[in-house]
Amino acid sequence: MTQAAQAVPETATLAAEPSGSRRRRGRTGYLLMLPATLWLLLFFVVPFYSLVATSLFDASGSDFRGYEMTYAWGNYVDVVEAYWQPFLRSLWYAALATGICLVLGYVLAYAIAFKAGRWKWLLLVLVIAPFFTSFLVRTLSWQLILSDEGFVVDALQFLRVLGPDDRLLATPVAVVAGLAYNFLPFMVLPLFASLDKIDPRLVEASSDLYAHPFVGFWKVTWPLSLPGVVSGTLLTFIPAAGDYINAEFLGSTNQRVIGNVIQGQFIDANNSPVAAALSVLLMVLIVAMVLVYVRRAGTEELL
């Protein structure tokens, strides 16, 4: 009988929120939430609806003459036929960049969380510092570094990694490198947050229990850092898939990504239905990939 009382132990008194003190019911909650909700409904949800609607307009109209709503699902078929290459390229580049970010970011986050000691905060500041220099200026700077006269190409040519006429700029390598560089902080910060929570004694315990450091890492540190890995890869992959600044500054027309196409269709070609269909497709693909990924990683609670 006393056992029964202990089976529902203090968790009941702690977890069952002390009524009235923690989450209050009543009107205040709605009032506080209202402005932000309205803003997001008006300028995020409704626009998305209008994006879907636009994607179904008759594509033969124009921005000046107006469009007709014809539920032209054929738009989607057309854009897939016409633009499947930049589409796949975007996702491929983003995946590559995410992979590189994960490796580099993990090393960096691990070093900061476990090896930096009292310099932890300073290193964290240094991680986010580049983030505060304008994205475009940063990318232009890469252009300079990777340019044919830049020191990187010179060095690689000297080392015979590159032939005398090979270049880095205007190649996929440059685009992926740029993406990986630009989104690295989005990977490092969540990884650090996860790693920093891990009690180093757990790793010690694993080596005490005869685990080789690599095994200890693989069986203890890595699984515990998974939430950071998942949110880091998402935060990197999603913006990377939609980005076209890197492709524009560091690639050539052979590295056109879906962002270039959408932007061009909207602004230069004035073909809103096509651009909208591409946008919707991109969003749907990304959401689908995210859901599958998150489910497989077993970290649904992140959403």
């Binding site: 994006l51 636009t54 935060l235 999603i238 651009a275 946008s279 991109l282 969003m283 995210v290």
Partner: peptide
Amino acid sequence: SANLLIFLPMAAPEIVLGSSLLTLFVA
């Protein structure tokens, strides 16, 4: 739902956010 509404804009690529808004303003 409110939590989801907050999360989604961060999960959408900028190009999608931008083109959605543009279609709204045009419409």
